[in-house]
Design a protein around this nucleic acid. Sequence first.
DNA 1: GTATTACGTCAACATTGCTGACCTATTTCG
DNA 2: CGAAATAGGTCAGCAATGTTGACGTAATAC
Lengths: 179, 179
Amino acid sequence: MLKAKARESRFVPPPKLPPPTPVVDVGDAEMRLAQDLLFFAYRGFTNVADQVLEEPGLGRAHHRALHFIGRNPGITVSGLLAILRITKQSLARVLNALVDQDYVRQAPGYEDRRLRLLTLTDKGQALEARLFGAQRERIAQAYRTAGPQAVQGFRAVMRAMMDKGARDYMDGTGSPEDA
Amino acid sequence: MLKAKARESRFVPPPKLPPPTPVVDVGDAEMRLAQDLLFFAYRGFTNVADQVLEEPGLGRAHHRALHFIGRNPGITVSGLLAILRITKQSLARVLNALVDQDYVRQAPGYEDRRLRLLTLTDKGQALEARLFGAQRERIAQAYRTAGPQAVQGFRAVMRAMMDKGARDYMDGTGSPEDA
DNA sequence: GTATTACGTCAACATTGCTGACCTATTTCG
DNA sequence: CGAAATAGGTCAGCAATGTTGACGTAATAC
């Protein structure tokens, strides 16, 4: 006997199907569409990197760390935490793996020696380049397909979609701590 | 003694900081930017729903199931799996929780009674509406900020960013199985 | 009447987030 | 100088969500 029956002792007769999630006004349809767009586009974008990550046996968390260290050489652990918004314990797991496997190097801060300044090793730069290469292809193709006009719109909407902290980080206005 | 020293017996002298991840040509800078945009925008977008999910104690996986069942009333389990691209074991955990808590209803297929047609209950529709409300706010505000012109570009780029299967699904050309 | 299909389930494991507690080295400040 | 604050590290345990592999059952298809 199916345990599913415990969940619903007998299948009820097929109900009249309700209409799809109700669209109250014209705007709603657009918003529903945007939900789908974000989900599928983000998945497509991340999937291409996953393939590259398989070889060294790393995960997306490692990719993110690699990416932001690459973009911010000499960033501190706190800075990276502020960007990623995860706990230091979560970051530690990932960062230790990257350091152990010689993708990332730590150096003490110049004036404040409590700081650990993070940089990519050559090996780390090489891996990041491969990851970037995969995603760049996908982005470039999307940009080509959509056209330069569309790219501007894309950027504007994406910028407006993120929270202020992230926007500030992207603007370079303020240290990564503001992200 | 810090175990970190086991990872690197002595801190090496502060290296010359390498330049940020090298930008080969003009296009590369744009692509790097796009990476950041996607990460931060997607995070902002999902975060607003997380707050709503806390109350019923559900996760993002539940939200996704809820969303796609809502958009495709009567969808089969296989159909949902094809959209989400996860294993049926992963979906089962989430789906069983939703059915147990009366967010989702299963009904046997009409002609083929092996099928489980999934629909949202009233309770499920209510929750989905709240989740949608939160994200809609964020999207609407982004759309207003960016302007209608930008929205068109956003859509074009996002569409082009996803893989063909997802694009086909969005076009409604073909059953969800093609996603 | 057998094979296939659609779905469900058990078990075990990996990744990546979290909280709580506590340790060390360094800098800051009264 | 000595205490407090700061930057970072670590251990332990847990939760959510993804994976494989194996197997069971009901219904349809050939």
